[in-house]
Design a protein around this nucleic acid. Sequence first.
DNA 1: TGTACATCAGTGAACGCGCGTTCACTGATGTAC
DNA 2: TGTACATCAGTGAACGCGCGTTCACTGATGTAC
Lengths: 209, 209
Amino acid sequence: MAVRPRSPRGEGERLRATLLDVATEMLAEVNDIDRLSIRAVTARAGVSPSALYMHFADKDELVDAIKQRCFNALREWVADAGADAGDPRARLFAMGKAYLAFAREQPGWYAVCFQTRFGELREDNLPPARDTEDADALVFLDLMDAVGAVIEASEEELFEISTVIWTALHGRASLLQAMPVCPLPDEDRWLARLALVLIGPEPGGAGGL
Amino acid sequence: MAVRPRSPRGEGERLRATLLDVATEMLAEVNDIDRLSIRAVTARAGVSPSALYMHFADKDELVDAIKQRCFNALREWVADAGADAGDPRARLFAMGKAYLAFAREQPGWYAVCFQTRFGELREDNLPPARDTEDADALVFLDLMDAVGAVIEASEEELFEISTVIWTALHGRASLLQAMPVCPLPDEDRWLARLALVLIGPEPGGAGGL
DNA sequence: TGTACATCAGTGAACGCGCGTTCACTGATGTAC
DNA sequence: TGTACATCAGTGAACGCGCGTTCACTGATGTAC
């Protein structure tokens, strides 16, 4: 790959951004974080492998940074889709479709969000705090807000219904990635079915079914 | 590891079974198929790495065989749980719980079923054929039967509802593995919520909520 | 019954590979005196 | 104004590692004549 000109003095942080750009771009090509090597990323950035260690302590730190980026991308993707919609119900629908579209069109990014495994289990079973900065919690809170705009329900009910929606969305997205052979009904029908049973029929309609 | 006595003449297939046993056992320990190497498996089996090639063309073939085993284990696990239950509704519940329990207690086996990626997308959106031998399809058909025993519905409705249940189950299982930090309501409440909205309230009860 | 041969279930050494990481270093640029 | 020095943004060679796979082989056992 092309050699990269050295950053001017005092702007060493530029390389960090470049490396993340390159890594994210490559992840969209290979679709699997395990196939991204430090050597491949630095090579494409036009820099020696060891240069990466000026900005990341090790590979884990790089992967964590990539993961943050991908979660933010997911959140924006869904939020953008929701912003265009008129009423709350259409908005929730649009967000659901956008969630599935993100997983379908950026499988590598989606996978890195949810495929890394085995952290600590949480003790409680409560919604995430409103002031969280965890990218994954923010995605969920956006969804919960969208559900809350559609139905009247207690905070607890809202939480539970939202988790069912989220797990179903993730389940569909993940199953289609994992085993594209597996038969699932058409996305719109499936979403309509999910919505119908979870948030009730559209006033004056059959919910699209 | 201990050296394995050579199989008697004509019983070379024994090693194949041994290798699969060992590989499945190790998968339950490391929980990630990518961390299972041919060298590690053959070492634990007490055999040289090259011996594996007498029974599997390459690593992919080994992984496929492991995957079949794990799907069958999942299916049995769920079926066994369902067999003990009395009425159809309790049976469906027990199967749902068993599905989640399998994913929780055998994360490596569960993951290998659903984590391998990027086959061909199916053209249609129809239920799997009744005479299929695909392990994944059989798991789904069992579920569909259990749902069918609970509610009156057309074959098409049954299919769609079952896919929502399956995607939700897989979504919950997968999210808990991928990000144990993520908050989900208690399993029983979540299942009850899922059942309530999908198959209607228990006759004469509040569905456990 | 003896013996040559084929088959079977493996072995063991070697291959080339790409990986993450370390470490001594370089050369340009800014700063202190 | 000149020069010694510190700092910064990297380089480049090397490390040890475990991996999947190949290939020529071995030694026990069965079979044909």
